[in-house]
Structure formats: structure tokens, C-alpha cells
Design a protein around this nucleic acid. Structure first.
Lengths: 320, 320
DNA sequence: GTTCTTGACGAAATCGATTTCTTGGACTTC
DNA sequence: GAAGTCCAAGAAATCGATTTCGTCAAGAAC
């Protein structure tokens, strides 16, 4: 790894001039050529660490997501990455496991690594964005919002819940249960509220145990579905508020010998790698990739110096 | 963000002493306490960038994988991350899309960012590890090997191909086709060789077009399967050499109205989020997470100064 | 012809840590 | 008690870029 000094020496100029050549400042054509020649010969690449220390900023953004093994979040990450790398930024992916401690830890790292910004799917309302914010680094919340006044991109979750539930009604189901995510996570909470709103509007009877709170993963959906099926008067349909719980629920349904084409299943999100499921499954497609692209775009705007008041962009989910 | 100088001033010591406190060097108890007090008051966190510049190394490793949306690679990534963060390292995930250009670019970044090491699923034999290697940064190849003398962790792919194909034979199939990945990618190439070996050993007739090369994703498997089914004398079973092509193939089979329980399907890898597939599908489970953990462990050993000759660890896949 | 402006470019400061060098005092050792 | 040993801790160098500041020469303006 050649340094700027070696290049300067070989080109017969000062290090400052080499730096100027690489940063688009005014340098005479001859010196420019001399520098580029020397840089080429030495295979010079500017040391990013030194640059970062001096500039107090880098071309790296952090993306904090709860679960890298959930296809929804990988699609989102894909969107962020594609958009960021278009602008020459790298993305550091961090798994928070929905754990506020890990989340805080990663935010700390992002700050001390001089990252240019953070895109965050907050694990909790407690996410301490203070440290980052006081450094003037932009933050964009994605999928979920936070109490802090930062940009956010989310989905109209209530509408998604309403659409899914309504579709089940329209298919003739009446006793519709809901498998919701953990309490306190905004996105699934809103979807659950959509379900409740429809049930109330349609004056449907909803026994208390038709609402199940489960963890966000397939095993959570599986357990919850088994409990629902074991009820003395089980539901005739169910809504799960995310994709993986839908996977689990479907598994439980099939295992129980219930015909999934008769029993109504609606999922907010997509059943990943779906191929054999009966067409009766209602899915509300979430624009995961688009969510990522939008968040990255907003973040890049902020990094570029945009200082308008915090915006919240709401994307619509569509029934598929 | 307080600096070491402010802490030093507040504690009434020199910056060097503050550094020593934070790096476990000999400092008298009183001064240690003074420094820790001051650091606490100022919420001091050492600037990682400055440290990295000085130490010429960081506690970040890069992980280069071809496709972040493939569950095999996310599971692998998960393994790497869990192991790395156990030792206080962060992982930067990079998507190469199996594109040698992107791959080279990321390797370049890893070098100029002073990353401590790289774990790489090589997109091609051309991956230029020279730059990284000359810096003395360790590299571990995972899932696939490289011509460079670096540590590697892989799966016994030939055995996996043999096991899968044999299982189809044992289930009574004879006309077994193979949907292999792109030419030149070691892992699937070996699985395909396993298939061929079994077919030859069993003296099975294999028409030329029973071997299809497809891209690595679901659509590749889907297209290839459709072509196979459209043959005048189609196969009665098929082996796909990775998970996503298996998803695509299954979809094509179902769509074509063929009973997937009668038609033999074997997949090297797991059908992700599988729930409704007929039990007849043969899957060879790959130890994805374990691959990641092992690679990370080897890399950390190297970072720790281990200089023994390059090792290759081969993990076994098991029929599920 | 003298003064002013402008622009290229080198010297040196800077970012914030770590690490080497140096110093001075306490403690051994004979 | 003089000489040698050891160790805590400050001063200063260092990592490799960027950026401020100052200089000098060429060209413009009067």
C-alpha cells in the first residue's frame, strides 16, 4: 500500500498536490498527469482510515435490522445496498435480534466508526438516538418509527391489516383469529389494529383468546396456531401479522390435518419461497425492497446536507 | 464525543496515561481511578478511526457472499457474525452477486479500510487475493476454494451429490436428470460430478440433455425443469445442485401437473421455509451456519497470529 | 511601470488515538 | 553510600490523509 507521500516523491510534487488531484481541486495539467502516472505505477489507493480521521466522516452507512434470516429484511437490505452503492457508499449490516442492548451497542459503534449515517428498524422505543444525533449524523427509521424526530419510511400497516382481514371476510369467513407479534412493535401492532377495526365494524364476535401474541418467527406462529386449533370452538380463519408467523401457522394447519384451502389464512407479508400453498392464502405484499431504496435515498439526501424538517413516507402494501 | 485529551486534562494526567488505562497497561491505582472517573463524566469512547490509523488494523472483518437473499448464505452469515461478535469483532456483509468485478472492488475496500481479515465465498478463480495477502491480512475461503494458499472451509460436495442421487435410485428412479449451476463454480460442479459418478456406476443411460446448466436462482431451476419436462422422453427424477434451483424446479413440476410425490426430486441444500412439500423430496442438509462459525473461528485464529500452513476443513452434509 | 488580483502549490497544522523515548524517583545490591 | 535496576508516567513522534495558510509568479488594471 503506497502512501500519498511516496506518490508525491515519485511525481516530484507535494503531498498536498496529490491530495488535490484525487479530490478534484485545481492542479495544472502537467502535474496532474505526473501524479496520476506515479499513482498508477505505485498502485496507490488513498488510505480510507486516514481520510476518515481527517474528514470526520466516511462513506459507510450502517443498517440495523432485527433478523437477517427473515426474507423481508434481506429484501429491504438489498434495496438499501443497491441504492447506497450506486452513490459509492458501503453498507454495514448489523443484526439486532430485536434486542435493545445490541441495538444501542451498534449505534455506539456507528458513532465511533464515523459512519455517515444509520438506517434503523428500531427494536424498541428506547433506541437511544441521542449519541448519533448529537454528532449530526442522520438517522432514518425504516419499517417502524421512533419517538425521535428523524426521517422514517414505513408501510401503511393498518390498511394492510384491514385489507387482509376484509379479504378473509369476503371469502366467507367469520370467526377470524389474529396471531400478532410481540407487544410494543409498532408495525405488527398496527396490523393487528386493522384486524380489530374490521372485526368491530362487521360486528363479529371475537372471543378473547382469538388474539394471540407470539414471537416474530415461524415457531411463534406455529405454537400460536396450535393453541387456536385446540380451542373448544376454534376459528375458521386466521390473520398473521408477519411473514414468518404465517409460515409457522400454515405448518400447524397442515399438520393438524385441516384443509388449508377451506381454513382461511391471511398473511401480512409474503410467504417466502411459496410454491405449493393453496391459492386460498391471502397475502398482502409489502414493498420491502422499495422500503430499503427509499430509506437509503432519504439518508443520502441528508448526508448531502438536506436540512428540511423530518419527513415520514408511508408506502402502500398491496393485496396479491 | 470527548477525546482522549479532554479526559487527560480532566483527570490531570497525560493522554498517554489515558490510553494505557484503556489498553491494560501498568498505571497506578489512583491515576487509573482518576482516568476512569473523568472518562465516565465525559462519556468518552475511544475514536476507532484514530486507533485504526495508528494500529493499522481494526476489529472488523469482511464477509463476501454472492447472494444475501439466499437463505443458505444468510445462515452462513449468521454463523460468522455470532462467532465474530463473541470475540468483539464486527462483520461487514458484502454482496458480490457472483460478479468478479464487485468482488475485486470489495476486496480493495477491505484492504483500504484496514479490516482485520476477509471471509470469502469466491465468485471465480480470478478473485485477486494478492492485494489483501500482501498486507498480511488473513483470508478464509468458505463454501468454495481458491487457487491461493489460504484457509478454506467447504462441504464434501461430491459426497452430497452421491448421497442425493443414490437416494433417488433407492426410491426406484432410473432416468435421473441433473440441474447444475453455472459452469465453473466449484461447489455445484462437485455435486454434479457426484451425480455423474453414480449414474455411471449404475450404468444408467443419460441422454445429453439430462444435464442442464442454469443460473443459481429459483428462476434458473424453473426454466431448466420446464425444458426437462418438455423433452420427448422426460426424466422421472431430477437432482438440483442448490437450494433455490430446487425451489424453481418444484414449482415447475407442480405447475406442469406432475405429482411431486411420484416424480423424484432431490436437492443439495434445504428447500427454505419448507412446509407443504411432499415427504418424497430428498434433501441433503448443508451445515451452513456451521460453515460460517468454522470460517470465523479460523479467521480469528489467524488474526490472533497463528501462522501454520493453510488448512482446508471439509464438513459433511447429511441426508435429511 | 506600479499595484492589485488571481491561482497554483508547498509547508505545516490537524484529526485522535498508540507507542517509543526519556526522565526521575523508589528500591536493590554489594 | 554509590551504582544499578525497575517502573510509572509525561513528551513527542507516528499513522496517512486533508486543509489552512502563506508564497510567488503571472496577468489585469490604471
Amino acid at each position: 500500500m503506497a502512501t500519498i507521500y511516496e506518490v508525491a516523491a515519485l511525481a516530484g510534487v507535494s503531498p498536498a498536490t496529490v491530495s488535490r488531484v484525487f479530490n478534484g481541486n485545481t492542479v495544472s495539467p502537467e502535474k496532474t498527469r505526473a501524479v496520476l502516472d506515479a499513482a498508477g505505477k505505485l498502485a496507490f489507493t488513498p488510505n480510507k482510515t486516514a481520510r476518515r480521521l481527517r474528514k470526520q466522516s466516511s462513506e459507510v452507512v450502517a443498517l440495523l435490522i432485527p433478523d437477517i434470516e427473515n426474507p423481508f429484511f434481506t429484501a429491504l437490505a438489498r434495496g438499501v445496498e443497491d441504492r447506497a452503492s450506486e452513490s459509492g457508499f458501503s453498507v454495514v449490516l448489523c443484526n439486532t435480534d430485536d434486542d435493545p442492548v445490541k441495538e444501542t451497542n451498534y449505534l455506539q459503534i456507528a458513532a465511533s466508526e464515523q459512519m455517515a449515517g444509520v438506517i434503523l428498524a428500531p427494536a424498541s422505543d428506547e433506541a437511544d438516538l441521542g449519541a448519533i444525533a448529537s454528532l449530526g449524523r442522520p438517522v432514518v427509521a425504516v419499517d417502524r418509527t421512533t419517538p425521535y424526530p428523524v426521517d422514517a419510511v414505513k408501510v401503511d400497516n393498518r390498511a394492510a391489516g384491514i385489507a387482509a382481514t376484509t379479504a378473509l371476510f369476503d371469502a366467507g369467513h367469520r370467526r377470524i383469529a389474529c396471531i400478532a407479534g410481540p407487544v410494543g412493535i409498532e408495525s405488527t401492532e398496527d396490523r393487528f389494529l386493522g384486524w380489530r377495526q374490521v372485526m368491530t365494524a362487521r360486528k363479529s364476535v371475537v372471543p378473547g383468546d382469538f388474539l394471540q401474541h407470539a414471537n416474530f418467527r415461524a415457531d411463534g406462529g406455529y405454537q400460536a396456531m396450535r393453541q387456536l386449533l385446540a380451542l373448544p370452538e376454534p376459528p375458521d380463519a386466521v390473520l398473521t401479522t408477519n411473514n414468518l408467523m404465517g409460515v409457522g401457522a400454515l405448518q400447524a394447519i397442515v399438520e393438524a390435518g385441516v384443509d388449508p384451502a377451506r381454513f382461511g389464512l391471511a398473511v401480512v407479508g409474503e410467504l417466502p419461497f411459496l410454491f405449493l400453498t393453496p391459492p386460498a392464502v391471502v397475502q398482502v405484499r409489502l414493498p420491502a425492497r422499495h422500503l430499503g431504496v427509499t430509506a437509503a435515498t432519504m439518508l443520502l439526501e441528508r448526508i448531502g446536507g438536506d436540512t428540511q424538517a423530518a419527513r415520514t413516507i408511508v408506502l402502500r402494501a398491496e393485496l396479491a
